[in-house]
Amino acid sequence: MSAPEPIIARVLSRLGAATLDAIARLGFATRFFIAMVKQSGTAFSRPQLIAREIYQAGVLSLIIVLMSGLFVGMVLALQGYETLVRFGATESMGVLVALSLVRELGPVVAGLLFASRAGSAMTAEIGLMKTTEQLAAMEVMAVDPIARVVAPRFWGGVISLPLLAALFSTLGIYGGYLVGVRLIGIDVGAFWGQMQAAVDWRYDVLNGVIKSIVFAFAVSLIAVFEGYDAKPTAEGVSAATTRTVVTSALAILALDFVLTVFMFRGGPH
């Protein structure tokens, strides 16, 4: 009876250590976030730094986001037509495309693309700076790396993603218009008119924007934190980059569920 106990004890202690590690990491992330918000004043006093990060995170993600938006909109229109034509309701295609994009697909897909295109780059950059001891060198020169490196990237991401999500939705609606009106031949007036009658700017558009802002905070925080927390080795940086994409994707989808429950539960009021 003495043999199995050490195994159970080992399993339990490993489980406990993993749990404690996870909680400690969460605590460190919170401390990191607070430090970053404190240092954000420095970042905003030098907008040039943030502009560079908006360029890196936003401008360079434009092509992929715009193209994806266009194609998602076109596919939505084609698939929506298949279903709507059975009920003789093809005029509602504008509503279908606009609502799905503005409420869900715009913020979520743009967020996922942003996490893999820009978030991973942020993590890799900061992680590599840590590995090559550039962050340590900054500290030696009395430059706070959180103020100089982390905060501008974070705010650059926070500013970029909502704009990218709006562009994604816009291009998607345009793609839906191309397929629905130009290719299938739905009436132009019905497409836009029904859309405008059904989409409420506050209930649908504003809630979509709020979603994208929440995702922007989550993805940017995960990206800079994983970079800052990466093990200073080549493997560590690569693992941190992977973690950024995986955690961001999960965070976006889970937050999306929570936000949708709060935003779209009872119908418009």
């Binding site: 502009a51 560079r52 908006i54 360029y55 936003g58 401008v59 434009l62 606009a98 503005v102 500013i159 970029s160 909502p162 704009l163 990218l164 709006a166 562009l167 939705s169 816009t170 609606i173 836009w192 859309m195 405008q196 009658a197 989409v199 409420d200 700017w201 506050r202 649908d204 558009v205 979509g208 924007v209």
Partner: peptide, 25 residues
């Protein structure tokens, strides 16, 4: 960089305005 960021922010805001006005009425 400033130019590109300016363009990006401008078209992003234009997209928001489009969503609010043309789509959301």
């Amino acid at each position: 960089i400033d130019l590109w960021v300016g363009i990006f922010v401008a078209i992003g805001l234009a997209a928001l305005v489009f969503l609010a006005l043309k789509v959301g009425n």
